[in-house]
Nucleic acid binder design. Structure first.
Length: 278
DNA sequence: CGATACACCTGTGTGC
DNA sequence: TGCACACAGGTGTATC
């Protein structure tokens, strides 16, 4: 579910609602998706009494910096949620951890399919932690340029789509935004990394930056599970041009093509056969 | 090392 | 109504 725009939206929301608050209690309902140097129950021991100093992001990973050094990293996987409960609101099924914060704020971590995980990094050393070991250049960092993208793709024979989904190259894109960026850049689904012209890579880079930016402004894409840090859906699903639109008319002005769905490496790819190369 | 297949988990929607 | 199957935003691991 959550790709870069969704994770960034959660980061921004939590920056407003939980930064500066102190962890008063930690309720762990289910701990088999908590990575920790020692034991999952260490979560309460380490976090209780510390305040949340800031919330950061690397690719699709959220970083909660705690006072005194430790970091709580959150990867939401497909169905993960990290949001604050409204007053009187009860946690739903599949809520695995609740942080009770000062001021009566409750931050919950929920994940139906449990593809996500928490990682407690006691010494705060992000460069050595498990979750970030294979995270490449963030798609919204300054160093993600067209030139950098070209270097990352050079010499690869894989499908472009597979490379863009590979977090160790560019971090932050998932199935939705890869489909959207390739549609915007008019690159067909069968394109391979090593057969792109320079101008196509530049167009792809512009498309990636633009679609992520627009999606963040819309607070992300909600298909079924994703919610912002405040627990509400995003709205970018209304502006998708390819993803999830099989059989519908292409949204490119004057195109009139019909969006198709194919399966590539076991995942759906949506594209317009008329305005995207193939 | 690079590319691909698959497993991990739960819920929902479809067709018989 | 019951059941089988396809499918879903991600990613680590095994295999060639």
């Amino acid at each position: 579910m959550p790709e870069l725009p969704e994770v960034e939206t959660v980061r921004r929301g939590l920056s407003r609602s939980v930064v500066g608050r102190t962890v008063e209690a930690v309720r762990v309902r289910r701990c088999d998706n908590i990575l920790c140097e020692t034991e999952p129950h260490q979560l309460a021991e380490v976090l209780t009494g510390r305040s949340i100093e800031w919330v950061g992001r690397r690719g699709k990973n959220l970083i909660l910096q705690m006072s005194g050094g430790p970091v709580l990293l959150v990867n939401l996987g497909m169905t993960g949620q990290l949001y604050t409960l409204a007053e009187g609101e009860e946690p739903l099924e599949h809520t695995h951890v609740i942080l009770e914060l000062s001021g009566g704020v409750r931050l919950v971590y929920r994940d139906t399919r449990r593809f996500g995980h928490l990682e407690l990094i006691c010494d705060g050393d992000l460069d050595a932690c498990m979750s970030l070991r294979n995270v490449g250049v963030d798609a919204r960092s300054r160093s993600f340029t067209a030139r950098r993208l070209a270097e990352l793709l050079a010499g690869r024979t894989a499908l472009l789509k597979s490379a863009l989904l590979n977090q160790s190259l560019v971090a932050g894109l998932g199935n939705i935004y890869v489909c959207e960026a390739m549609h915007r850049a008019r690159i067909g689904p069968e394109a391979r990394c090593n057969e792109l012209a320079e101008a196509q890579i530049e167009a792809l880079h512009r498309a990636i930056v633009a679609v992520l930016d627009e999606a963040i402004k819309a607070e992300g894409t909600t298909i079924s599970d994703y919610v912002t840090g405040a627990g509400v859906p995003g709205s970018f699903q209304r502006r998708l041009r390819g993803y999830g639109r099989e059989g519908l008319t292409c949204r490119r002005r004057g195109c009139g093509g019909v969006i198709r769905r194919i399966v590539q490496s076991n995942r759906s790819t949506f594209y317009c056969p008329k305005c995207q190369g193939g």
